[in-house]
Amino acid sequence: MPWNFDSDKPIFIQLVERLESDIVSGKYAPGDKLPTVRDLAVEAAVNPNTMQKAYGELERLGLVYTQRTNGRFVTEDAGLIEKTRKELAKKTAQEFLSRMKEIGISREEAVKLLGGKA
C-alpha cells in the first residue's frame, strides 16, 4: 500500500496510525523486526525525525520495543494487539458515523447501509 498523507493533519499522527494498522493487520507480525527509521522514512518520503517520533510513540504505547543492538521489534503481546485493533475499529466506525451525520444520514440508516439490522 502506498503512503498517502492528508496535508492538513500532522504527519506524525498519520504515521502512528498507519503503523498501528500495519501491526494489527499482521503486515508486521508479533516479534517481527521493523525497518530502520531511515529506510522507512525514505519509503514513505517523510522526514526521518518525524518517523523517529512515530516509532517513539509506538514504543510508548507498548506496540514496539527496542533491543539495543538489534533494532526495533513488534510486541509479542497478543492481548495488546487485539486491544489496539478494537480501538482502531471503534475510531473508524465513529469517523464513518460522523461523516454520515454530516451528509444527513441517521445512525439507523447508516447501519442499514452496512447491511446490519438497525
Binding site: S7, D8, K9, P10, I11, F12, T50
Partner: peptide
C-alpha cells in the same frame, strides 16, 4: 510544520 497542521488543521 506539524504544529501548523495541529493548531489550524491546515496544510
Amino acid at each position: 510544520v506539524d504544529e501548523m497542521r495541529d493548531e489550524k488543521g491546515q496544510s
